[in-house]
Each structure stands twice: as structure tokens, then as C-alpha cells.
């Protein structure tokens, strides 16, 4: 395994100097090759963002009978944004999303790291076990949601196993109890995405130079000391990448959750994506949805830029 954290100046391959016509050919072809991707990116970013910004300043709804470009007729300036600031349901959905993230991502990380540690050296059956353990992340999330919907039925296998373990009949209504429903949803997320942590962390783990580990052993470090002083520092970048991926993806959590609980009971499992979905399809106030969406995009962009700056600064400090 090699690590290649691309930095800005590595993005482009250094081009060998050649004559001017050849340079022209290269530039032309490069432009043409990247054009379709540029168009697609522009198509999904620039225009939609402007449209979203525009609509977010109005009360426009698909039911309002005018085309979206006439939304100015329903101009409300920043009313949507002030509403949003006081929308309790939005803030609690955001809070819930963060709670789910703060539980799921660390648990996935620790389980994934523990599994990766077990897989660091060779043993009989390794390849087969590895393939099986990766399976959950390849299951269609909606299907995974349905699996856990079945498992957590009150007459379902989870209660059956608990009955067997505890010795008395258990009939917990997992998905209709507000607290348990959130737990069930998190369990499903952990089931599906621990393998991703495992996969990435294992790739990082096998990349830790073996002779440095041996050197540490020869210098008297025990397994735990080796792990803390050599393995973890060497895997720092990979750990950050793995956590970042899961934080980003977990923030979007929708498919599994929506199929298991539909955001319910009540709003007990309503996360940001579910909330937006409901406002979009049930309340149909798209002007307001646009405001929510835009606010999230802005916050995420700022967070992303800050995170990237921080990482770049770290890299520089390390240099």
C-alpha cells in the first residue's frame, strides 16, 4: 500500500517541455477532455445554486401556480431565514443528526480499528473472513434498512435472541419507542459502516513499516506501547481520512433510517435529511426548503474550507 495524499501542486503532472505546436495540442486536448466533467459540475452547481438562492427569498411552492422564475411575486426577503432561525423542529433535527454522528462514528471507528488490528498479520481463513466482513457496506442501504426493520419488529429475531439470553420472553417495541428507535437506527448504521472503517484502517495498518515495529519491540516496547507510540502516529492521516469520510456520510443519513422509522415515531428519529425530505414532499414550501438547503451548504462549505486550511497548515508544520 502506498499513501498519496495529494496536495495542490501534485494535482497536475509535470509536463515535459516541448515545442509550441505540441503545447497547443496538449492544451486543446486537455481542455476538450475535461470539458464534459466541467459542464456537469457547472450544471449541478452554479445555476442550481443561484436558483436556490433566488427561491429561498420567496414563498414559492410548486403548488403556487406560477413558474419558479416568477417567484419574485412572492418575495419575502429574509423571512425564510428568520423562520429557520426559530424553527425548533429544524434545530432538534440538526441536534439529532449530530447525536447520531457522535455516537455512530466513534463506535464504528473503534470497532473498525479493533477488527483491523486482528487482521494485521496472516492467519488461516483471513481472506474469506475479510470478504465476509466487508459485505454490509455493499448491501443497498435501503435494503439494509428493511433488514433492520424486520430484525427490530417486536416479534422479530432481536427480541427472540434477547429472550433466549435472558430466559424470559422479551417483546420490546424497538421502532415505536422514541429512544429505542434512535438506538435501532444507530445500530443499523454501525452494522453497515463499520466495515468501511475496517477496510480503510486495515489498509493503513498494513502500511505501517514492519521494521519500525520490530525496532520498537527490540527497544522494549510492549504491544500496547507499540500501538500508541508507533502505529497510531503513523496512521494519523489515514485515521483523519476515515473519520472525515464517515462524518460527511453520516451527516447525510437518510436511506436506512427513513425505511426503518420514517423519521418517527413522531419526530424521534428525524434527522436533517429526513426533515428536509418531509418539508419538500409533504409541506411543499420549497422557498423555505431552499433556505434550509442553502444554509446547510454554506455552513458545510465554510467547515470544509476551514478543515482543509487546518490540514494544509498541519502539513506545512510537519514539513
Amino acid at each position: 500500500m502506498t499513501m498519496a495524499v495529494a496536495s495542490e501542486n501534485e494535482m497536475s503532472a509535470p509536463a515535459p517541455k516541448s515545442s509550441a505546436p505540441a503545447q497547443d495540442e496538449r492544451a486543446r486536448l486537455g481542455f476538450r477532455l475535461t470539458l464534459p466533467a466541467q459542464i456537469l459540475v457547472l450544471f449541478i452547481s452554479a445555476f442550481p445554486l443561484l436558483m436556490q438562492a433566488y427561491i429561498s427569498l420567496t414563498d414559492w411552492s410548486p403548488l403556487s401556480g406560477t413558474n419558479w422564475w416568477n417567484a419574485w411575486e412572492m418575495w419575502n426577503t429574509f423571512a425564510n431565514y428568520t423562520d429557520l432561525a426559530m424553527d425548533g423542529r429544524f434545530w432538534s433535527a440538526l441536534w439529532r443528526t449530530l447525536v447520531v454522528m457522535l455516537v455512530c462514528v466513534p463506535v464504528e471507528f473503534l470497532l473498525g480499528l479493533a477488527l483491523a488490528t486482528l487482521f494485521a498479520d496472516d492467519f488461516p481463513g483471513k481472506k474469506l473472513f475479510y470478504s465476509i466482513l466487508l459485505m454490509p457496506m455493499m448491501v443497498v442501504p435501503a435494503v439494509a434498512g428493511y433488514m433492520f426493520f424486520m430484525l427490530f419488529q417486536s416479534g422479530g429475531p432481536v427480541n427472540d435472541v434477547l429472550s433466549g439470553l435472558l430466559g424470559f420472553p422479551v417483546a420490546i417495541a424497538w421502532l415505536s419507542d422514541p429512544k429505542l428507535a434512535l438506538a435501532a437506527v444507530m445500530i443499523a448504521d454501525i452494522w453497515q459502516w463499520t466495515p468501511l472503517m475496517f477496510l480503510i484502517l486495515l489498509a493503513g495498518l498494513v502500511g505501517v513499516p514492519q521494521d519500525q515495529i520490530k525496532a520498537a519491540t527490540l527497544l522494549g516496547a510492549n504491544a500496547w506501547q507499540r500501538f500508541v507510540t508507533i502505529v497510531v502516529p503513523k496512521m494519523k492521516t489515514i485515521i483523519i481520512i476515515a473519520l472525515a469520510i464517515r462524518v460527511i456520510e453520516n451527516f447525510k443519513i437518510f436511506d436506512t433510517l427513513y425505511i426503518m422509522t420514517g423519521g418517527g415515531p413522531g419526530v424521534a428519529t428525524e434527522t436533517i435529511s429526513v426533515y428536509i425530505y418531509k418539508v419538500t414532499t409533504q409541506d411543499l414550501i420549497w422557498g423555505y426548503v431552499a433556505a434550509i438547503a442553502l444554509a446547510i451548504l454554506v455552513v458545510l462549505s465554510v467547515a470544509a474550507v476551514l478543515a482543509m486550511k487546518r490540514m494544509a497548515a498541519n502539513r506545512e508544520a510537519a514539513a
Binding site: P48, Q52, F254, T280, A293, I296, L300
Partner: peptide, 9 residues
């Protein structure tokens, strides 16, 4: 970005 946040446009 969450797909949900760009779906309106």
C-alpha cells in the same frame, strides 16, 4: 454536500 440540500433546484 447532502443530496437532499441540492434537490430542490
Amino acid at each position: 454536500f447532502p443530496p437532499m440540500a441540492v434537490m430542490i433546484p
